[in-house]
């Protein structure tokens, strides 16, 4: 064990990485500081379960609903995989939001952590985008009308609203193109943004260290 670790360490610097990432000094903090890790864990769970769901899910108006019924009722543990993805999504929005509140109320966004905050905002918006695009995919009544309403909101933007609406829906109407592009955004574009931004976010957290709980006179 030790031999393997030192063999790897000599060639990769693994122990240094381990020390920098996991043995860095942290101030005495409380449970609110675990929300970032909780969000990260949920993001990874969403990735794993989401990848698994694409094995059976078919993003077309004819098949989407039936394929999800198949996952829920026929595939072994399909209910579990989809259940984790469904509830994990809700929980992730919650943890990311609470994480933002923690950072906000402790003033942890201040110098030198402004860039961490900005990447965090990107992560929050991306998470909401994932929730919004994922909501359409079951292609049931609730999904359809929620997306009809949600995309219509974009149409109210002055001047470019009508254009943005068509970009979002892939046309003027909610159609198979909307489902297809929401699927693409949900499984490729947004996760790519999410995980690369998580990389930057984590780098900054490790580089700058985490803030301590502000004292009464600060």
């Amino acid at each position: 064990m030790n031999g393997l670790v030192s063999w790897l360490d000599e060639r990769t610097g693994l122990l240094t990485v381990w020390r920098v990432v996991f043995e860095r000094k942290v101030p005495r903090v409380n449970w609110w500081y675990t929300l970032g890790s909780a969000s990260l864990f949920l993001a990874l769970m969403q990735a794993v379960t989401g990848i698994l769901l694409t094995m059976y899910y078919v993003p077309t108006p004819e098949e989407a609903y039936n394929s999800i019924q198949y996952i829920m009722n026929e595939v072994a543990f399909g209910w579990l995989i989809r259940g984790i993805h469904h509830w994990g999504a809700t929980l992730m929005v919650l943890t990311v939001f609470l994480h933002m509140l923690r950072v906000f109320y402790y003033g942890a966004y201040k110098y030198p952590r402004e860039v961490t905050w900005v990447t965090g905002v990107v992560l929050l918006l991306t998470t909401l985008g994932l929730g919004f695009t994922g909501y359409l995919l079951p292609w049931n009544q609730r999904a359809y009308w929620a997306t009809a309403v949600g995309t219509s909101l974009v149409g109210t933007v002055p001047l470019v609203g009508e254009f943005l609406l068509r970009v979002l829906r892939g046309g003027t109407e909610l159609s198979f193109l909307t489902l297809s592009r929401f699927f693409g955004a949900h499984i490729w574009i947004l996760p790519a943004i999410l995980f690369s931004t998580i990389g930057v976010h984590l780098y900054l957290v490790i580089r700058n260290g985490i803030s301590y709980i502000p004292r009464r006179d600060e």
Partner: peptide
């Protein structure tokens, strides 16, 4: 807990 069900999930149609 998640890994074992995944195996079942993946091989389900073959069964």
């Amino acid at each position: 807990l998640v890994g074992l069900p995944i195996i079942g999930y993946l091989i389900a149609p073959a069964l």
